[in-house]
Simulated scan of single mutants.
Amino acid sequence: MPEPSALRIRAAVPADGEALSLVDRLTWSPLHAVMPEPQPPYGPFFDERHAPEDNLVAELDDRVVGYVTLTRPTKLACNRHVRQIQGLAVLDEARGRGVGRALVRAAVEEARRQGARRITLRVLGHNTAARALYAAEGFAVEGVLPEEFLLDGAYVDDVLMGRSL
């Protein structure tokens, strides 16, 4: 699907924290989240583990509608060549408009720009839409942790996916 002309992917800035926190709350679902549903008072989106520079923001018509978080999976020097997608969210109103695909592609390009050789992610086994998107963008299943999480009374696999850059 072609990207809509009003779609823009850009680096996050500190001022995006509130909008990204709202995206997180509005998109929370046991389909993709292992953490409990956010409750007030809501903590900050950016923290010591995820700084603004670890995120790319999707805007439609100058409104934040999604993000992707891309970081190093560990602080180990021997793992410096890998980047990991640690969050991807798109508001319901923006789904079906190529936003998620644009964010994944932007994360891949950003990982390349940073000199990474690989990019990885984890996705819940029952999230078939996300798995299909990642597969269409060149990610392959590299491992499965069976029944890793108990969500809404059902055991769910944790699927590890990755690709070379």
Results as ranks from 00 to 15, higher is better:
residue 3 E to N: 12
residue 4 P to K: 12
residue 4 P to T: 13
residue 5 S to N: 12
residue 5 S to G: 13
residue 8 R to H: 11
residue 10 R to A: 09
residue 11 A to H: 07
residue 11 A to D: 11
residue 12 A to M: 01
residue 15 A to E: 12
residue 21 S to R: 13
residue 22 L to F: 10
residue 22 L to Y: 10
residue 24 D to E: 13
residue 24 D to I: 11
residue 25 R to W: 12
residue 25 R to C: 11
residue 25 R to P: 07
residue 26 L to N: 08
residue 28 W to S: 06
residue 28 W to I: 08
residue 29 S to G: 09
residue 30 P to V: 02
residue 30 P to T: 05
residue 31 L to A: 13
residue 35 M to Q: 15
residue 35 M to P: 14
residue 35 M to S: 15
residue 38 P to T: 04
residue 41 P to L: 09
residue 42 Y to F: 14
residue 42 Y to N: 13
residue 43 G to Y: 08
residue 44 P to S: 13
residue 45 F to V: 01
residue 50 H to C: 14
residue 50 H to Y: 14
residue 53 E to V: 05
residue 54 D to M: 05
residue 55 N to M: 12
residue 56 L to P: 00
residue 57 V to D: 02
residue 57 V to H: 00
residue 60 L to I: 07
residue 62 D to F: 12
residue 63 R to M: 14
residue 66 G to E: 04
residue 69 T to C: 01
residue 70 L to D: 02
residue 73 P to I: 01
residue 74 T to F: 07
residue 77 A to R: 14
residue 79 N to P: 11
residue 81 H to E: 00
residue 81 H to C: 01
residue 82 V to W: 06
residue 82 V to H: 08
residue 84 Q to V: 07
residue 85 I to S: 01
residue 86 Q to N: 03
residue 87 G to K: 00
residue 87 G to C: 02
residue 90 V to R: 01
residue 98 G to V: 06
residue 99 V to A: 04
residue 101 R to M: 07
residue 101 R to L: 08
residue 102 A to V: 05
residue 103 L to G: 00
residue 104 V to E: 00
residue 108 V to S: 04
residue 110 E to I: 01
residue 110 E to Y: 02
residue 112 R to K: 06
residue 113 R to M: 01
residue 113 R to K: 03
residue 114 Q to L: 10
residue 116 A to H: 00
residue 116 A to W: 00
residue 117 R to I: 11
residue 119 I to T: 04
residue 121 L to P: 01
residue 122 R to W: 14
residue 122 R to V: 12
residue 122 R to Q: 15
residue 123 V to W: 02
residue 124 L to Q: 06
residue 125 G to D: 01
residue 125 G to P: 01
residue 126 H to P: 03
residue 126 H to V: 07
residue 127 N to P: 01
residue 128 T to A: 15
residue 130 A to I: 05
residue 131 R to H: 07
residue 132 A to G: 12
residue 132 A to P: 05
residue 133 L to I: 06
residue 134 Y to R: 04
residue 136 A to T: 09
residue 137 E to Y: 05
residue 138 G to M: 05
residue 141 V to H: 07
residue 142 E to Y: 06
residue 142 E to A: 09
residue 143 G to R: 03
residue 145 L to K: 15
residue 145 L to Q: 14
residue 146 P to M: 06
residue 147 E to Y: 05
residue 148 E to Q: 14
residue 148 E to K: 10
residue 152 D to N: 08
residue 152 D to V: 07
residue 153 G to M: 05
residue 155 Y to P: 03
residue 157 D to S: 08
residue 159 V to F: 04
residue 159 V to D: 04
residue 160 L to K: 09
residue 160 L to H: 12
residue 162 G to C: 02
residue 163 R to P: 03
residue 163 R to H: 02
